[in-house]
């Protein structure tokens, strides 16, 4: 495992825990897109179907269980426990606009036309765009709380670090996974505007505000 990959995974874990911490301590899901979290939950479940069929390492299995359980917990907190605080009226992105194309693409572009491989490819494609409802919500409300900004930064960094890992693996191992790399680049590019605002505003101690 490359250092970039490890840093990426840790950044991913940090993002998930930051979000849970924010919702739990403030007892509020305000400013968080339930739709993005629901889609991330779908991403983990459809990707880690191999959890019980192919063992890779303790690290691998632990992370998979962590991602699925933390994601289910996040969705539960948003839609059940702190439902009253969830800004459903600002979370207006239509999920079918990304779920349907991800599914169609997975049926066309996969490594084998089997249930597991199509489910895996769907998961990779959906992950690339699952953040859109959240970014749309930040744009719509015009701002994000600092901890939400840190969450988005950690989440965006995760796939950006994976890109460095893929470059490293291509050079040193000759390993290359075209589906993951393509989706990973799209995913990272979507965070472009956000990264810019994060560095120019949040790092300088200001709140993240989107200009009208």
């Amino acid at each position: 495992m490359t250092l970039f990959r490890l840093a990426g995974d840790l950044s991913h874990v940090l993002a998930i825990l930051l979000l849970l911490y924010k919702i739990w301590t403030t007892k509020s899901a305000a400013g968080i897109s339930g739709k993005t979290q629901l889609m991330f939950c779908m991403v983990y479940v459809t990707r880690y179907l191999d959890l019980f069929t192919s063992f890779i390492s303790v690290y691998n299995s632990t992370m998979k269980v962590l991602f699925i359980s933390a994601s289910v917990a996040t969705v539960y907190l948003i839609y059940f426990k702190f439902k009253a605080t969830y800004d459903g009226n600002h979370d207006t992105f239509r999920m079918e606009f990304v779920i349907v194309p991800a599914l169609i693409l997975a049926l066309i572009w996969n490594y084998a036309f089997t249930f597991f491989e199509i489910s895996w490819a769907f998961s990779i494609f959906l992950e690339a765009v699952a953040i859109l409802p959240q970014l749309f919500m930040v744009t719509k409300t015009g701002e994000a709380e600092n901890i939400t900004s840190h969450y988005l930064f950690a989440l965006g960094s995760y796939r950006a670090l994976y890109i460095l890992n893929w470059i490293d693996r291509y050079y040193f191992e000759g390993h290359w996974d075209p589906i993951a790399v393509t989706a990973g680049i799209v995913q990272t590019v979507l965070y472009g505007d956000f990264f810019y605002l994060y560095f120019t505003r949040v790092i300088k101690g200001r709140k993240l505000q989107v200009l009208p």
Partner: peptide, 10 residues
């Protein structure tokens, strides 16, 4: 090849 066998990445 390795793509369908074991996906070591998360």
């Amino acid at each position: 090849d390795t793509n369908t066998a074991a996906k070591d990445e998360l």
